[in-house]
Amino acid sequence: MTGFPVGITALVIVTLLIFIGLAHRALDRMRLSDRGALAVIVAMIIGSFIDLPVPGARYPVTVNVGGGLIPLGLAVYLLVKAGTARERARALAGAAVTALAVYVVGSLIMRGLPEPGGRYEVLDALWLYPLVGGVVGYLAGRSRRGAFVSATLGLLAMDIGYYLWLLARGAPAGRVAIGGAGAFDAIVLAGILAVLLAEVVGEVRERLQGGPAVRGRPEPLLRALRKPDLGKGGDEE
């Protein structure tokens, strides 16, 4: 990307900054401190340049550190840290539903002769994944973490399914590069955008219903919610 005019270079840099800003905002919300979130982003960017080959596979399979290992590791960490077994099961079910929905829409509906995206192409697959992951994650547990796990593990399941498809078809060639596009891989984009989507949906819903639901919520949460000046001096943003 060197040697381009100022306009293009500025565009690339600003896009990167906005992307990193959004990623930080999303990661910040998932059992990570401000610095922890930043460390994850830096690790993803550096890890983008490292591909780990998976030995013993019939077709070349690689896992990119920045685009695969770190986001998937984070998803597993969130699963392990989930409060209850039920929550864990919901997140995993969300991932399965995401994989299925993405497969049905991206591979069964949007395929065929029409160019360049197959028939019924309305939304590019790249934007479809976070949408499905975010909606499913939200439905599965009204949780940002659920959205992240659904989106990232759902796409991992797609990649595993693709490897099995290559085997079943006896493909003469093929490659499964999990997270191969590094920090710009659909796995990372889907995870981050799904969290932001779940957050937007959650906030809008809460606003529409005139504040957070209080029935059946634990007392410490309610006490915290009642405080009018809690955010002051805190790291709410």
């Binding site: 991206g106 591979s107 395929r111 590019d124 994944y129 797609m158 493909a171 093929g174 659909a186």
Partner: peptide
């Protein structure tokens, strides 16, 4: 392959 929209993924 296969020829679908997920091919862009």
């Amino acid at each position: 392959d296969p020829h679908d929209d997920n091919a862009y993924y």
